[in-house]
């Protein structure tokens, strides 16, 4: 069985948030404290330990309103082929399911160190003060191993979220992109659909109607670990410079003492 994933076609999302509710219902997540944000119709604000799915609302209008559109994006864990969270976890609590390819946090193993929170390029993983562990979308691990689709895909009334084999979804996504380009939607682009692209492709990938950064996603997602060799080099260099500086310092402190000693000898 190939990797399972989701294709999120934001061009047909209506922003109804049914996916958010279905996610919470299936995964038994508590409601968050109601809070009016004033950010369009988005009162969830961010992915969190209680919100594994989050619909973003982006209002784009030219000054005279001649051009205007309301963009929606149902965001979740991308189940990256090269998962930063997995690499960062010191206790192997984050695993990749061999048969379905989804990235899964084993709650009983997680020690709550939060290294994965910093290692995720998308800001997906969140720490819970209640469980003292981290949480994120599991790609409905229980459902997909029982032959069902994910709860969000099941609930989506426009099939903006589709679940299936990643290979097949990629074909469908490229076809949809070609259709949109044919309709003159030149800004439409696929995000994470290229297996040779950033993070070797995302198992949950998107068709976006504008640049990823418009949707609060990194245009070029990369793992923070990528900078490790460079920063290690700087650390070693800094240590060497400090050591040398210390040696030089001791030498100059030793010099007057020797001079004093010589003066004492003279006095004798």
């Amino acid at each position: 069985m190939g990797a399972k994933g989701m294709f999120v076609d934001t061009s047909i999302c209506t922003g109804c948030k049914a996916c958010q509710v279905a996610c919470k219902e299936w995964n038994g997540l508590d409601g968050a404290k109601p809070h009016f944000t004033g950010d369009s119709y988005d009162n969830t604000a961010t992915l969190s330990a209680l919100n594994w799915r989050h619909v973003r609302f982006i209002e784009q209008f030219s000054d005279d309103r001649s051009q205007g559109r309301w963009l929606f994006m149902s965001d979740s864990c991308k189940h990256c082929s090269q998962a930063g969270c997995m690499e960062a976890c010191p206790v192997n609590a984050i695993i990749r399911r061999e048969d379905t390819g989804n990235v899964f946090i084993k709650q009983e193993t997680c020690i709550g160190c939060r290294y994965c929170v910093a290692a995720c390029p998308f800001g997906v993983i969140s720490y819970s003060e209640i469980t003292k562990t981290v949480h994120k979308c599991t790609l409905c691990d229980d459902r997909i191993h029982a032959g069902l689709e994910t709860a969000c895909a099941k609930a989506c009334p426009t099939d903006s979220i589709t679940f299936g084999d990643v290979d097949e979804l990629r074909v469908a996504a490229n076809k949809r992109l070609a259709t949109l380009k044919g309709l003159g939607q030149n800004q439409a682009n696929l995000y994470g659909a290229d297996p040779n692209g950033d993070l070797n492709g995302l198992n949950v990938f998107y068709l976006l109607m504008d640049k990823p950064s418009v949707y609060g996603q990194p245009d070029k997602p990369e793992l923070p670990q990528k900078r490790l060799p460079t920063s290690t080099g700087f650390t070693v260099l800094a240590a060497a410079v400090t050591g040398l500086a210390a040696l030089v310092n001791f030498r100059s402190r030793g010099a007057p003492r020797q001079a004093q000693g010589a003066a004492k000898e003279m006095a004798k």
């Binding site: 209506t14 922003g15 109804c16 948030k17 049914a18 958010q20 509710v21 919470k24 219902e25 508590d30 409601g31 968050a32 404290k33 109601p34 809070h35 009016f36 119709y41 009162n43 969830t44």
Partner: peptide
């Protein structure tokens, strides 16, 4: 009306999952 609530909200305003999505009259 909004998709998040049903009619005057007497049912949906009591559901935490719906209440958090549209928390206040605006």
């Amino acid at each position: 009306r909004l998709t998040e609530h049903h009619l005057s909200g007497t049912m949906s305003r009591w559901l935490p999952w719906l209440a958090e999505l549209m928390p206040e009259l605006f």
